[in-house]
Amino acid sequence: MTRSTTARSALLLGAVVLLVAAVALSLTVGSRDIAPTDVWRLLRAPDGTGEAAVIHEIRLPRTLLGIAAGAALGLAGALMQSLTRNPLAEPGLLGVNAGAAVAVVGGVTLLGLTEARQYVWLAFGGAGAAAVVVYLVGGTTRGRAGTSPVRLALAGAAVTAALMALVSGLIYTDAQALDRYRFWAVGSLSGRDLTVLWQVAPFLVAGLLLGLVLAPALNAMALGDDTGRALGARPGLVRAATGVAVTLLCGAATAAAGPLAFVGLAVPHAVRALTGPDDRWVLPLSVLAAPVLLLLADVLGRVLVAPGELQVGVVTAFLGAPVLIALVSRRRVAAL
């Protein structure tokens, strides 16, 4: 079904409104409820009270991290689905989550790292290295260079399985490493300050810009390599650039917040079902919609077991699984 530009623009505007509402909820809801008017006042002029400390030291950093990680995972998922021509693909398909996990476990067991800000560079480096290995393995077969969506997916699955086996071997021999890895691996926006976000911000911005620029080329590639070439796209270059963008986005988000399930899978799929297959609309709408899911999941985790808290990675798994089941149970899966 062809969607009109007006309808797609309305969806884009609706996503912006929902994102603003999600940010407001993230700043106001928690174990200590703060009125929206007080939040706005304290954001502009902190007065040294406990409420000001809660907003500036806890809620503002996790809200900004939620926006950044959500946008990165949403775009990375949309790019992976276009790259592999699989509407159920997800960012971890390139092995970035597994690569980050190996690096974090190595840092904990070998270097004795204990804080999230110390994990960031190791996790990002591990994610990048794993993606390079997947691309090299999936890009060559029987002596011939070149990539295809199927080979990339198979290479990603194989590398991920090998790396996660290594992770299991490391953490099950070190109880301390297991405890620290469990906290990182569940995915969380809490316990991170703005230093973590600033560390990964350049990679997030570069990945966002590169990913959005690729939309026209991905549209051409969706028609097949030959048609894509006829329309001016270069398949090898497009796949390589898409892989770089996914690595930057998913690697940075995973390094900062840990692996967050379903955000990069369910959100782009739902967006594609609403907008149609045109990546010029799917990509930017995924950037806006994914942070909404992540922030709302974070808020929900604060209130469900108050005064305790559920980590956002647990909540996104509970929210994303039924949504995804409902989507794939429809008669037609959103086509790419």
Results as ranks from 00 to 15, higher is better:
284 P>E: 05
211 G>Q: 08
218 L>V: 10
251 G>R: 07
293 L>I: 13
281 W>R: 12
280 R>M: 08
289 A>V: 15
216 P>R: 00
233 A>Y: 05
206 A>Y: 04
286 S>C: 09
296 L>W: 08
295 L>E: 09
254 T>R: 05
266 A>Y: 07
214 L>M: 12
230 A>S: 15
283 L>I: 00
298 D>N: 10
218 L>F: 05
272 R>A: 09
261 A>F: 12
218 L>G: 06
282 V>S: 03
266 A>N: 07
270 A>I: 14
261 A>E: 14
284 P>W: 05
270 A>V: 13
278 D>E: 13
293 L>G: 13
224 G>C: 03
284 P>G: 06
277 P>C: 09
283 L>T: 06
219 N>R: 07
238 V>P: 01
266 A>K: 06
211 G>D: 07
229 R>H: 05
284 P>Q: 00
247 T>I: 06
267 V>L: 01
217 A>L: 11
233 A>M: 08
222 A>G: 11
207 G>H: 04
274 L>Y: 03
272 R>P: 14
256 A>W: 11
260 L>Q: 09
278 D>A: 10
209 L>Y: 01
290 A>H: 09
278 D>M: 06
259 P>M: 14
231 L>R: 09
224 G>I: 00
265 L>E: 10
258 G>D: 11
251 G>L: 10
239 R>Y: 08
232 G>H: 04
262 F>S: 03
214 L>G: 02
268 P>W: 11
247 T>E: 07
267 V>K: 01
290 A>W: 08
216 P>Q: 01
267 V>A: 08
215 A>S: 15
249 L>S: 13
252 A>V: 11
261 A>D: 14
246 V>W: 12
227 T>C: 00
272 R>M: 13
223 L>C: 06
204 L>Q: 11
280 R>P: 13
233 A>W: 01
225 D>R: 13
239 R>L: 08
245 A>T: 03
210 L>S: 05
289 A>D: 02
258 G>W: 05
206 A>W: 01
224 G>V: 00
279 D>P: 14
226 D>H: 10
277 P>E: 02
254 T>F: 10
254 T>E: 07
266 A>F: 05
295 L>N: 03
206 A>D: 09
251 G>A: 08
212 L>F: 06
244 V>M: 08
250 C>V: 15
281 W>C: 03
224 G>E: 02
284 P>K: 04
271 V>N: 09
295 L>Q: 09
274 L>Q: 14
285 L>C: 12
213 V>P: 00
244 V>H: 04
270 A>F: 14
207 G>N: 05
250 C>P: 10
211 G>Y: 08
232 G>K: 07
217 A>V: 00
273 A>W: 14
231 L>W: 10
226 D>Y: 07
204 L>N: 08
213 V>E: 07
242 T>R: 01
229 R>S: 01
248 L>M: 13
220 A>G: 12
250 C>Y: 11
296 L>Q: 11
291 P>N: 02
258 G>R: 00
222 A>V: 03
219 N>E: 00
272 R>W: 13
284 P>N: 04
216 P>N: 07
241 A>H: 03
258 G>S: 06
298 D>K: 13
286 S>M: 03
297 A>H: 07
228 G>H: 04
250 C>K: 07
244 V>E: 05
260 L>F: 11
208 L>T: 03
292 V>F: 09
296 L>A: 15
232 G>L: 07
255 A>V: 04
285 L>R: 10
235 P>K: 04
235 P>H: 04
262 F>K: 03
267 V>I: 15
230 A>P: 00
292 V>T: 12
262 F>G: 01
229 R>D: 02
